[in-house]
Design a protein around this nucleic acid. Structure first.
Length: 503
RNA sequence: GGCGCCAUCGUCUAGUCUGGUUUAGGACGCUGCCCUCUCAAGGCAGAGAUCACGGGUUCAAAUCCCGUUGGCGCUACCA
């Protein structure tokens, strides 16, 4: 039997971290087993579902590099976004499948396994209120289970629109073997006759999933463990319809720092936010994979291929995981450090553009500049970059032609420059640097070091003022690489500027 | 309230099924030292877990059994 899994978000907002992690586990499982990964949109909540959310979900999955074999895909046609459905079980939007749910609901009614219920919302509310007063569980009492023709006709004449309820067996136990949790069982008499079809004709989650998972030949249902309590209802439906059940795997949820369900209160939860901050999709995938899954040796860094190879549901944790931004940040730094300079530059470019740091008038000029200047500047700072977003600030002084007063950090002027002897050091070094024909890292280092030695100064005493004079900051790349990168002209200009204005 | 799921350093987790090899291992974060022109990175060291609690079983329990507590979830014409 072929492996088919699905990610089935409801498009009520951006792609959530928890959703992304669930999608990832499904995708990895499919990849590992050579199976099919399907995207299905559960948009039966008409009020909260939006097209933008569908787009955000699709974009998020694409950003992370998870490709799906069946489901809606986005294509751009003459600058217009077009959603095209791909796969043998289309459509993949539940609102386009209403006929199907109605058909199976009808079948269950005919088989005497479901019935129409004409109770009004107010009546149900009343029922629940009474139940809670009498300290009984708020369970629908099944009063419409065996409506006789006359009563039913009366309701219809009143204009009531019925819902369809499932006739939940009131005896026995429903159990299933969960791949991550083992055996889970529920007493049937605790379940009530839940609604399958709303009076509007659209299905309720528990019914729609079953119909779609069956129709789409889903072999493994991998989802958050908030669905564990829904599973018996779904199993009862599979049995009533005479369908083969899929295997279930309930993976632990992702929680916020205080241990409660991850929400805006805990900071950003949308994948898009992390993209905009300059996290790399590879780092995100790696981090998310480790939330609820680990190998025996607790390996931390996995590339995608390795993940596809090693992932297994059996090794998933059972307990919920708290999202830890610190660790994600560390991991992002790890991935940034591993990148080739030109790759990193490509990723950084949108952030550079956003800060208006791009130089060059024609495309060709820009290309040259990126290749000759930008890439070099970024790689000087590569080892300390944690977020792509931080790059513009880190290298801004390297890209500017001239530094101005505000480019020099205030406290730095006081602490480093306005120290006795600094003026002498800077002008001495200037005199030596000006004579250098070859402004290479090695030559500069040799020259500056020998100055320090000859004038009997500690290297730091000499290096530090130069760094500040040339960058306006106390932190930065190795000094000689930096000087060489800037070039003789800029270095001399900046030293002169510093001497003239701050000393 | 009822039912279900879960419970190892602050956090992610390994170890639990198949009890002894564990003075409970790794990673993030934290502290210190080394390297060093700064910041990082790297190296080394350290603090940090009465394995939620209480009972049992056993020569031996983080590991098996029972109970308790806590967290989360479901209990909607939300998904």
């Amino acid at each position: 039997m072929s492996i088919r899994v699905r990610f089935a978000p409801s498009p009520t907002g951006y792609l959530h971290l928890g959703g992304a992690r669930t999608a990832l586990f499904n995708w990895l499982f499919a990849k590992r087993k050579g199976g099919t990964f399907i995207l299905r949109i559960e948009d039966t909540d008409k009020v909260r579902s939006t097209d933008e959310a569908v787009l955000a979900i699709i974009r998020g999955l694409e950003w992370l590099g998870m490709n799906w074999d069946e489901g809606p895909k986005i294509t751009i046609d003459q600058h217009k976004v077009v959603i095209e459905e791909v796969g043998k079980h289309k459509p993949y939007f539940q609102m386009k499948r209403l006929e199907l749910y109605r058909k199976y609901a009808e079948k269950l009614i005919e088989d005497g396994k479901a019935y129409r219920c004409y109770c009004l919302p107010e009546e149900l509310e009343e029922m629940r209120k009474k139940a809670s007063q009498e300290k009984r569980p708020p369970k629908y009492d099944g009063r419409c289970r065996s409506l006789i023709g006359g009563d039913e006709n009366r309701y219809i004449d009143e204009g009531r629109k019925p819902v369809v309820r499932f006739k939940t067996p009131q005896e026995g136990v429903t159990e299933f073997e969960d791949i991550v949790r083992g055996k889970v069982s529920f007493q049937n008499n605790l379940l009530d006759d839940f609604v399958m079809l709303k009076s509007s004709g659209s299905p309720i989650y528990n019914f729609a999933v079953v119909v779609d998972d069956h129709e789409m030949e889903i072999s493994h249902v991998i989802r958050g463990d908030d669905h564990i309590s829904n599973t018996p209802r779904q199993i009862l439906l599979y049995e009533a319809l005479g369908w083969k059940k899929p295997q279930f795997a309930h993976v632990p949820m992702i929680l916020g720092s205080d241990g409660s369900r991850l929400s805006k209160r805990h900071g950003a939860t949308s994948l898009e936010y992390y993209e905009n901050e300059g996290y790399l999709p590879e780092a995100m995938v790696n981090y998310l994979a480790l939330l609820g899954w680990a190998t025996e040796d607790s390996q931390q860094i996995f590339d995608i291929e390795e993940l596809k190879e090693k992932f297994s549901l059996e090794r998933c944790a059972k307990s919920a995981a708290i999202f830890d931004l610190q660790k994600l940040l560390w991991m992002n730094g790890e991935y940034i450090r591993k990148m080739k300079p030109d790759e990193l530059t490509t990723e950084a470019l949108p952030f550079i553009i956003k800060e208006n740091l791009v130089q060059g008038d024609t495309d060709e000029e820009v290309r040259q500049w990126v290749e000759n200047v930008l890439t070099e500047a970024i790689s000087l700072e590569q080892e300390k970059i944690k977020l792509l977003k931080d790059i513009p600030y880190l290298i801004s002084y390297m890209l500017k032609e001239d530094l101005e007063n505000e480019d020099y950090e205030e406290e730095v002027k006081e602490k480093v420059l306005k120290v006795s002897g600094v003026k002498q050091i800077l002008s001495d070094c200037r005199d030596r640097l000006v004579k250098l024909e070859d402004f290479s890292e090695e030559k500069i280092e040799k020259e500056v070091r020998s100055y320090a030695k000859e004038s009997d100064k500690k290297t730091g005493k000499v290096f530090h003022p130069i760094r500040v004079a040339v960058s306006g900051r106390t932190r930065g790349p190795g000094l000689f690489a930096l000087l060489s990168f800037l070039g003789k002209e800029k270095v001399l200009k900046r030293i002169d500027y510093t001497i003239k204005n701050f000393l």
